[in-house]
Design a protein around this nucleic acid. Structure first.
Lengths: 242, 242
DNA sequence: GAGTGGTCTAGACCACTGC
DNA sequence: CAGTGGTCTAGACCACTCG
C-alpha cells in the first residue's frame, strides 16, 4: 500500500529546521556556540537523542562543528579549515600558504538572462560584479569574476573589499550576514585570451582551468555566481571522490 | 590530563572493522545483502544500536547501502549510481548517456619511481598498463592510461577488457575481487600534444583537462594510478563543494 | 568537580517491503 | 503477516575541557 502522507518528516528533521531557523535569524552567530544538547532538548520538548541526531546531520553538512567537552559551534568562514573547503587549489610543492586577494574592480549592473536564471532573480534586477586576483607567493594564479544579488550586498564596493583582511566569504558572513554553505563547480580547460593572459602573466593561448561556481546559502538559495580562471602550471585542483 | 590510551576506539568502530573484514574476505559480495542488524548484534554480542552506528558510518562512506524494509546491501560498481561517483563528466546538454569504453592497449611493465611510490609497491615490481578511450555518443572524449599492481590483476589482458561489457571498476570488482572505494583526483589544464590530439580528434595545442587519479580499496590501500585527458568542449567536470 | 559532547544499552513503536 | 530498517525515548556511563 502506498504511503498516506508523503510529507512525513521525522521529529529530528523538524528540530533541525528549527535550529537552522535560529542560524538564519542570527540567534547564534558564526563562531559562537549554540546551547547544549540538554538545553535544546528541554527547549523543544524532545529527548536529547533526537536533538543529537539533528545536530549530527548538521555537523555532517558543515553547518555546525562539535567539540567534545566544549560545546557545539556555528561554522564560520573565519575558520581557516572552511577556507580550503571552497578553494581546492594546492601548490605542486605541497606547502600551504594562504593566497592574497587583490580586488581589481567592483561595479553595479543589471541581471541578464544567465545571471537571473542562475541566481533566481528577476531579469534586470540589480547585481554587483567583482573582479579580483588571487596571488600565491606574489604570483597571480586565479582571476575571478563574481556576480552577486544587489539586494543582499548593499554598500559593497572596491573600498570595502580592499580594506578587508581575510577571505571574501568571511567578509560576506560578518558584514552582510550571508553564509555560503555549499557550491557546485563546473570545470573546463580553456585557452587564455589576450587580456587574461596579460593579467595573469602567461602566454596567450595557454591552457587555463575554468571554474564556474554557483554558491548556495541556507535553504538551497543561490547567492553567488562566479567564474574563475586558474593557472595550473604550479598548482592543481584537488578533489576527493567518495 | 592527557588521555592514557591514545588508541581508544569505540565499540561501534570495532564492529565496523569486523564488518569490513567480512567484506574483504568476500563473506558478503557486492550487490548481496548483509545480515540484519538484529542478527549482527547477536553475532557480535552488542546492542542493535551499536551495530546501527557502525552501519551508518559505512553507509555514509558508500560501502553499504541501506534499503528500508529490505535490508542492507554491499555497494557494487554494477550499480549505475556508483558509476557517476567516479566519472564526474557531464555533457553540456545535460542528457546522461553512459559512455562506451574502448580499450586500446594493455601491456606488462615494471614499476618506476613514481608508480612504486604512488602504489606503494617495490621499485621494479610487476605492473599492468592499460590505455583506453571513452566515447560519448561516438566521439572520443576521454583518453585514459591506468597503472595497476600486477599481482592483483593477474590475467588482465586486452581481450578480457574488450570482451567485458560494463564499467572497468565492475570488471575489477567481479573478476579480481578488488573494490574501488574512494579516490583523489588532481586536475590541471594542459595543451594537447600531437599524438593525443590525433587520438581525440582535436587540434594540437588545444586545452584539455588533465585528471590524475589515485584510487584506494579497503584500508586506504592504493590499487590504481591513472591519468586521464578530458576534452571539455562539450562536457564539463562537475564537483560539489560541501 | 561541573558541564559538555560521545558511547552503549534496552525497549517501544513507526514505515516500508514482500510473501 | 513477519521481517527489515528508521525513529524516539530514558538512563547509565565514558572522554574531554576548563576553572
Amino acid at each position: 500500500m502506498p504511503q498516506e502522507s508523503p510529507t512525513f518528516s521525522p521529529l529530528y528533521r523538524q528540530i533541525k529546521s528549527l535550529i537552522i531557523q535560529g542560524l538564519e535569524a542570527g540567534e547564534w552567530r558564526p563562531g559562537e556556540s549554540i546551547p547544549s544538547e540538554i538545553d535544546l532538548a528541554a527547549r523543544y520538548s524532545v529527548s536529547q537523542g533526537t536533538v543529537r541526531k539533528a545536530i549530527d546531520e548538521m555537523a555532517s553538512e558543515n553547518l555546525l562543528i562539535r567539540k567534545q567537552g566544549k560545546g557545539t559551534f556555528v561554522a564560520s568562514h573565519l575558520d581557516p579549515r572552511s577556507f580550503f573547503r571552497f578553494l581546492r587549489l594546492v601548490p605542486n610543492s605541497g606547502d600551504i600558504t594562504p593566497p592574497q586577494s587583490v580586488p581589481l574592480d567592483c561595479w553595479r549592473a543589471r541581471a541578464g538572462q544567465e545571471a537571473s536564471r542562475v541566481l533566481g532573480i528577476e531579469l534586470g534586477a540589480a547585481i554587483i560584479i567583482v573582479r579580483r586576483v588571487l596571488k600565491f607567493a606574489g604570483k597571480p594564479i586565479v582571476l575571478d569574476e563574481l556576480y552577486l544579488p544587489g539586494d543582499l550586498f548593499q554598500g559593497l564596493s572596491l573600498e570595502v573589499l580592499q580594506s578587508y583582511n581575510g577571505s571574501i566569504y568571511s567578509l560576506f558572513e560578518s558584514r552582510y550576514g550571508v553564509r555560503m554553505i555549499r557550491a557546485e563547480e563546473r570545470l573546463r580547460a580553456v585557452a587564455a585570451d589576450r587580456q587574461t593572459a596579460d593579467t595573469m602573466g602567461v602566454l596567450e593561448g595557454s591552457p587555463l582551468l575554468s571554474v564556474e561556481r554557483v554558491t548556495y546559502t541556507y535553504g538551497d538559495r543561490a547567492v553567488e555566481w562566479r567564474r574563475g580562471l586558474y593557472s595550473t602550471a604550479e598548482h592543481y585542483y584537488l578533489n576527493e571522490l567518495g
